[in-house]
Amino acid sequence: MTNAVLHVADVHKSFGGLHALSDIDLQVMEGTTHAIIGPNGAGKSTLLNVCIGRIPPDSGAVVFDGKVITGKRPHEINQMGIVRVFQTPEIFPDLTLLQNVMVPAFAKRDGAFTLNAFRGADRETEIRDEAEHWLADVGLAGYKDTLAASLSRGDKRRLELAMGLIQHPRLLLLDEPTAGMSRHDTNSTIDLLKKIKERGMTKVIIEHDMHVVFSLADRVTVLAQGRIIADGTPEEVRGSAVVQEAYLGGTHR
């Protein structure tokens, strides 16, 4: 039996009177792709924000690899091996694509801070080659010297994916990785994510596109109004009456 890489234990979070997350208890198993779905405002992104230390939970804890990570700073959580790809692409617009991918590789190799001010960056052939490799994998090989600001939204997402993947994370958190992509790009992203899965990377993926969810996920958790309303294999969730209601019946109460 595989063990849990990530355990979100009994997490609560409210903003003012709004219960963004309540009683969230969730385990992500080693090597799996775990999808989190749910209607808008269900608390999916808040959950990821709690996991990466962007938002502190009101109560409960997040345990990663047997260690409590709640209260740690974002860079510490990243250094432990959790990498997040954001919903609105978070890239370095003023750097070239190649530099965008090299920067996270330096974080992985050199840690949270190194004063490596005297060695030319272009002598770092290993890191550059790896960055070029990942750029090619996401289909951006031809643009390595262009500024990231000039990319389309879909291309920025692919760039950010490469930035996440080059860190070889223990756990990759993907927030709607295919939103804004064409069908063709969506399919190539799915292929890429499948390829990564074969290498045993654990992933949590938030997605609206059911095509993506059912092509990738081993397990699906459904959130609605800050609560887990269903959790199971894709087939189980697809057949669940509660889920049908949450999606089709809209928000009630």
Partner: peptide
């Protein structure tokens, strides 16, 4: 240098740097 690259990355998107593992 890589250090200079990090400084420029901070200028470009400081929040991203923290989630990329940099202090």
């Amino acid at each position: 240098s890589p250090f200079g690259m990090m400084l420029k990355a901070i200028k470009s998107n400081q929040t991203r740097m923290a989630y990329t593992g940099f202090n």
